[in-house]
Write a protein that binds this DNA or RNA. Structure first.
Lengths: 149, 149
DNA sequence: TATTGTTATACTCTATAACTATA
DNA sequence: TATAGTTATAGAGTATAACAATA
């Protein structure tokens, strides 16, 4: 039977996305609970990770990258500032904007959190073989790209 | 410098998990919005998917599989029942338990939703090349396993 | 006494709408 | 007039605690 769906010439198929979607939703739910730092929400952690990569960003840029609305990012940044993990400075050229940078404390926290993450990872790793982990590693950058598209 | 973290002999490493975690959280946020059926939450969709695979399950089993607490699953199942997507029957051997099965309507809905998903997929697919999608396809089953571990 | 499911309640995260300040 | 960010408010989804029924 002919379908009306668009051609997917690059090998993507509905079953894979179906599986991916279900796995992502359930994994995200687990990650919410397995959070490495009890005082930080998953998105707050994600923002710190983004800042560690980008160096600096405006609240608006962060909102777009995290796929969150501006008011939500305002709250998140305020939380992180209150915890001493980011600094807010005036934008040099546009006085409407602000610039968010991570503090040294955030860097230390990320290092500490990486250690905790490894412990949790070790437990999960026991359930996968080397080949399976290789697939996850190969796909991780693509998933990040997917999240940004 | 020597670390105190456990050996990860199967090739898993912290950077991969770091990347994976961030991508999963952001993707899940996108998926929340790109939901194929406006009237169903991501978890409700996930439960239907699980039922489609398992055939039947008790609320407790579903709660464990979806990594949700029993009271939450009570609400989710009640919603799905109110929408005519699942049926609740008495457990044949244990009168404390119940058995959840999907209705024909749910099956039709899943088929319809697959069509919509393909449309959304076509847009995303444009941003990845064949090799990248191959990596996603290869990793999808592993991610599902990871979500269940 | 332990387990399955439910009810009642509260919390976390995010969104929308309305507002302020700057471009 | 448009844009960046904020404030105030509401909603969705989930958790915890307390309870009922059955094993």
């Amino acid at each position: 039977m002919l379908t009306t769906m668009p051609e997917l010439s690059n090998g993507a198929d509905a079953d894979a996305v179906n599986s991916l979607r279900s796995a992502v939703m359930r994994l995200s739910r687990r990650l919410k609970h397995q959070r490495v730092d009890e005082s930080l929400s998953p998105t707050e952690m994600s923002v710190l990770g983004t800042l560690a990569r980008c160096g600096r960003a405006t609240p608006g840029e962060l909102a777009r990258k995290e796929h969150v609305q501006p008011p939500s990012m305002t709250r998140i940044v305020a939380m992180l500032e209150a915890k001493g993990l980011v600094r807010l400075e005036a934008h040099p050229e546009d006085r409407r904007q602000k610039v968010v940078t991570q503090t040294e404390q955030a860097e230390a926290m990320l290092e500490e959190s990486r250690r905790k993450r490894n412990t949790w990872l070790a437990e999960l790793a026991a359930g996968l073989d080397a080949e399976e982990w290789a697939k996850v590693r190969a796909a991780a950058p693509v998933l990040e790209k997917l999240a940004q598209l």
